[in-house]
Design a protein around this nucleic acid. Structure first.
Length: 493
RNA sequence: GCCCCCAUCGUCUAGAGGACCAGGACGCGGCCCUUUCAAGGCCUAAACCGGGGUUCGAAUCCCCGUGGGGGCACCA
């Protein structure tokens, strides 16, 4: 085992937690647990304009639902707090000052208007938009005087103009860029707030982060981030940039509109939606863990503890991965089948209640084994087993007529079956099935023909959980009542 | 436009120079089991982006091309 890793998930609460963020959080969590280290949650909320109401709450709830509890962060105080960047403004300002003192940053007075104009000119000339370094020429005395005079200003990083910067990414090896291709990025805005580049690097250092595991959209600014660490004289953390998720077609990232379309098909990229759609934390975790990774040559079903055991950054792949919702269903079904029936019942209950069915827990517990290998998501049970909770079921007349049979023959079959069933106080009697098979034979029917009619009569469905198990749970009285109703429907044809 | 990253079945991936007529999983198709639907079991089809090198030997290393992705904000 490697040294204990101190890692962090550092989202910005500008929306609801999606599977990309969840997977980043998961890998951080796994490395921390795997190495006996700590998993921190830091909220990057320096840009108050972009915050979404309820975003933070959703984030904490989604992470907890997935089972990714953080060791330090909001609602889990630690020695490195506060863990909300909005409460760390002065820390960043002090570090910006230090960078200026070290000659690695400078104060810039250029107005947004000049910057915009500069950018336009550069684009017209087909040059990359970059700050021209005008304020680099200011002497410290000049700069200080203008600051004191109240002139608006930002702090920029003084990126070397010559040479190249090399940074090592765990998944990709050395990445080298020419410094001339880099910009003098802004570190501190004119309102005094730090930008991500400064805030995140300062916090990662102060919070003693050993591995920065984040989305690969940060790769382009990796050289800047490494230079910031180096400018302070700090040791760099290990950098690990995760592959991005592409839409199912593999062409491009998921857009907002596509996410809405997905929801209609029972899929989503948002954790809160997945939960509502009847996915389990186990299924979602398993699904996203394997998008961009492989932990075993012969096995791909894992629980969270199993993932902790096997996790290693070496198992991650740098290539982008297309999201595959069919696979989410598969993993969800697998994990649903792994649940103890009582647990399945407990988890399905809210979905029955949401559907307006008074789901008695004891009854649900008896039903669970019957539908366990049939449900893909927790809400599937409602459609599959709703008939257990309803007083009456309505069967379509056409469904009550056996395959290849007349309504007359079907009526007789229902009637004869009712008489046999009436003889059994307990429909769980194992002899019952043999008797009904005998009946089928006597009537010259295949078992499937008779059972099909009974299924439709008793459950109101053509597809249902096993007939005998279902009847045993429904009970003789109700079964006979439903059969009687079916007989009346058939006679009326 | 510029910079960076990536490239094995439809999809997620195994593969770190000979163990590969390329393995697993999802999905697809077929068979078995079966009262429906599932689940389960068995089987089939399906890939090393292209071109140059290096090497006795390349899916694996290098270069070029192509394709895909990401980034170029006083957002994160």
């Amino acid at each position: 085992m490697s040294q204990p890793a101190r890692v962090r998930f550092a989202p910005s609460p500008t929306g609801f937690l999606h599977i990309g963020g969840a997977r980043t959080a998961l890998y951080n969590f796994l490395l921390a647990r795997q190495t006996g280290g700590q998993f921190l949650l830091r909220i990057e909320d320096t840009d108050q304009k972009r915050l979404v109401p309820g975003g933070l709450e959703d984030l904490l709830a989604s992470l907890r639902w997935l089972g990714l509890q953080w060791d330090e962060g909001p609602e889990a105080d630690g020695v490195c707090g506060p863990y909300l960047q909005s409460q760390r403004k002065e820390i960043y300002q002090a570090h910006a000052d230090e960078l200026i003192a070290r000659g690695s940053a400078y104060i810039c007075f250029c107005t947004p208007a000049r910057l915009a104009e500069l950018r336009t000119r550069q684009q017209q000339r087909k040059e990359s938009p970059r700050y021209d370094g005008l304020c680099r020429r200011l002497t410290p005395a000049e700069a200080e005087a203008r600051v004191r005079a109240g002139e608006p200003h930002v702090v920029r990083f003084k990126t070397p103009r010559e040479g190249a910067t090399t940074v090592v990414d765990v998944l990709r090896g050395e990445i080298t860029v020419h410094n001339k291709d880099l910009d003098d990025s802004i570190l501190l805005k004119s309102d005094g707030w730090a930008l991500y580049h400064l805030a995140a690097m300062v916090d990662d250092h102060l919070m003693m982060i050993t591995h920065v595991i984040r989305s690969s959209e940060w790769l382009p600014s990796l050289p800047l981030h490494a230079m910031i660490h180096r400018a302070f004289g700090w040791d760099e953390p290990k950098w690990c940039h995760l592959s991005v998720f592409l839409k199912p077609s593999g062409k491009g990232k998921m857009s907002k509109r596509e996410s809405a379309e997905l929801m209609k098909e029972g899929h989503s990229v948002f954790v809160r939606d997945l939960r509502e759609l009847g996915y389990t934390p186990e299924g979602v975790i398993n699904w996203i863990a394997l998008m961009g990774a492989s932990f075993d040559e012969k096995q791909d079903v894992f629980s969270l503890p199993e993932l902790v055991e096997r996790f290693s950054l070496d198992h991650l792949t740098p290539a982008a991965a297309a999201v595959n919702f069919t696979k989410a269903d598969h993993f969800n079904g697998v994990h649903l089948r792994r649940l103890a029936p009582e647990e399945l019942a407990r988890r399905m209950r809210p979905f029955f209640e949401k559907a307006g069915l008074a789901a008695d827990e004891a009854l649900l517990r008896r039903i669970a084994p019957l539908i366990q290998e049939r449900v893909v998501t927790l809400d599937d049970g409602v459609e599959m087993a709703g008939f257990f909770f309803r007083e009456h079921v309505v069967s379509a007349a056409s469904d009550l007529v056996g395959k290849g049979m007349t309504s007359q023959a079907s009526t007789e079959a229902v009637h004869a079956a009712s008489e046999i069933l009436a003889d059994h106080a307990d429909l769980a009697d194992p002899a019952l099935e043999a008797k009904l098979r005998d009946l089928a034979e006597r009537l010259g029917l295949k078992p499937g023909q008779l059972f099909g009619i009974l299924r439709a009569a008793v459950t109101g469905q053509t597809v249902s959980p096993p007939l005998f198990g279902s009847m045993a749970i429904i009970g003789r009285e109700k079964v006979l009542a439903r059969l009687g109703a079916a007989e009346r429907t058939l006679r009326a044809m």
